[in-house]
Design a protein around this nucleic acid. Structure first.
Lengths: 343, 343
DNA sequence: CATTAGCACTCGAACAAAAAGAGTGCTAAC
DNA sequence: GTTAGCACTCTTTTTGTTCGAGTGCTAATG
């Protein structure tokens, strides 16, 4: 068990290191007026804390910095729950005071605002798309030979894809097809679209259109679209300002990772409810082993629907990051609930 | 006037420096088998070339590298018109062999492919939007109180915006409004939309709908949308591999510039027809003063409609970059022409 | 007389040694 | 139990040295 003095010293070291990114020496700690002991005393305590694994040195005669275990203890027991500034609270609240219509824009803007406020990277995983249902299908002819299919979902997502109208496919066949689609597919969750098309729609098209194979081929081409992106990343540039990214190689690795959704999505998926902190090697993904990730889930009523996360150096301002995420999640959940209740 | 020998030496230096990024010494030049003179002779010639401003040294006893004037002379008079590899030609041609429908995707993919092939940054400025015309307006109700307006242009661009349905606005008013819009606005170039709405549509709405001010307010909110983005940037990450970007500060400056369209668009706008090279300080924009920009315009028939550009270090492979851009522009112009002819 | 060999010279890069500075750990005194 | 004092450690900065790549100039050469 740590003594009060050890706790105080550990806390001061973490706070200071988060601020300066420099190892902290005993003299500097002694200068703080919360601390009433001499440097020598502090040195003794620091030696003990190091032995216990909470601190580490960069070399044998350097000051101390927190180890991962030190950060972990800090966030679990020492961290002051940070009061956000009025300005920060206003920024977030103001953002949610607008009517929320299109989920996508909400996600995208959220990522941008949180990046700006925290100076870390923000990752937002939108609501799982199996929730979202088809609202309407439209086909707009562009030229003699091409048209655009537009799908609107109940979350306000608009997906569109252009396609070539198969030679010889009748205009009326096209219209009939669209009618069938709207009749049969509206209200169906997007993930079931392909199944429904194969099962229900196929037969009807065969029955009602003059050139079945053409019409069906068109469908496959135009409607079996990729499910909408629901991952938003913002604030990559912020990382360039963090001293731990002085190294071009590190930047390259991080940036190239952040270019592929396949690599980011697993980081956020299936996080447990609430706010969680993953420090350094607590992250399963190797590329994040010297970063920290803070995740926070948001909900609709009881259902957890998405995750928002901040990614920064292990030396990050955990208190602030947590406070921001929690405020954001709370507001987001509220807004989502009232939005869904209206529907 | 330069002698043949000077021309040869200048060319060798540029070619070699583009390849290695290291200043070139007389011994290295002498080793090339196109060169039949001793290092001493070459040193004399180099001294002359430096005096004439084509070469420069990094320090008094270093090898030489091309000055901006040297590059300029090189691209104007010395550069071999590079034969692209079969593979490169195939990649580009194959890309254009598909049917082209949605202009936006074409632009975006073009940027990606050219970045990958050249390892520089690609900037694409899409066709000027004053060309694009409204094809159809649709409004899809989402909930009791919200709906999505969807605009489709003749270039296959889909723009959408969600809005809150003003309290008390009749459903039939909404439908009437949409009908009026489609009647009056289809075929109108996007840039004239706001003018047309104010002039033609305003009166009609007043006449036919029961609550004029609400319907009109809605219009302003939902239809006076930003003109579609027509700027695509790709390959930022490539710059991290260029030795001239070893410096984090430089990366920060470039990246932050590339985040704002307002800063990039002027670089590409109103470039003269054809392919043009801007070396270092020939670029008006200060942030590009140690980079080179190669622009190439593409056309529909006689009309110049857009610009594509490659951005890289002044030490870039001009021959290859020019060849790529020209092939791309040619193909793009052809495709656009046949696309427009069909419409 | 254009070319080239030869050589002194310059400068940066790489390395080593020295000095400065920050910080520790231990001992002995308070 | 706390702290002053001091020797010690290790990094960073500075200074000096050497090495090598390359130049410019001069004088010799074909």
């Amino acid at each position: 068990m740590l003594t009060d003095r050890q706790l105080l010293i550990l806390k001061v070291i973490v706070d200071e290191f988060v601020d300066t990114a420099q190892p902290i020496g005993s003299r500097n700690i002694a200068k703080k007026d919360q601390v009433g002991f001499s440097p020598a005393t502090i040195r003794n305590e620091m030696a003990d804390l190091e032995e216990l694994g909470f601190l580490q040195k960069t070399h044998s005669s350097s000051g101390r910095m927190p180890s991962e275990k030190g950060y972990r203890f800090y966030v679990d027991h020492l961290m002051d729950p940070l009061k956000l500034t009025k300005d920060e609270i206003m920024r977030i609240n103001k953002y949610f005071s607008h009517k929320m219509i299109e989920l996508e824009r909400v996600m995208e803007n959220s990522a941008n605002i949180l990046s700006e406020l925290t100076q870390y990277m923000t990752l937002v995983l939108g609501p799982e798309i199996f929730e979202t249902k088809l609202k309407q299908v439209q086909i707009v002819p562009l030229t003699q030979h091409s048209a655009i299919a537009i799908l609107v979902t109940d979350t306000g997502h608009v997906e569109h894809r252009s396609f070539v109208i198969p030679q010889g496919l009748d205009r009326s066949d096209l219209e009939k097809t669209v009618n069938i689609l709207n009749e049969k597919l509206v209200g169906i969750p997007l993930v079931y679209l392909d199944r429904m098309i194969k099962k229900e729609v196929r037969g009807l098209i065969e029955k009602y259109t003059s050139d079945f194979s053409k019409a069906y081929q068109l469908l496959e081409e135009a409607l079996l679209i990729d499910l909408p992106t629901n991952l938003y990343v913002s604030g990559k540039g912020n990382m360039l300002n963090q001293p731990e990214f002085n190294d071009i190689e590190k930047i390259k690795i991080l940036f190239s990772m952040m270019e592929s959704e396949e690599q980011i999505a697993p980081i956020l998926k299936s996080k447990e409810e609430g706010t969680h902190i993953f420090i350094g090697r607590e992250n399963k993904i190797e590329a994040l082993n010297d970063l920290s990730l803070i995740t926070s889930t948001y909900t609709i009523g009881e259902d957890q629907v998405g995750t928002i996360a901040l990614l920064g150096p292990t030396r990050m301002d955990y208190a602030k990051a947590v406070a921001m995420l929690q405020l954001w999640s709370k507001q987001m959940s509220q807004s989502l609930k009232s939005w869904y209740d209206k529907n």
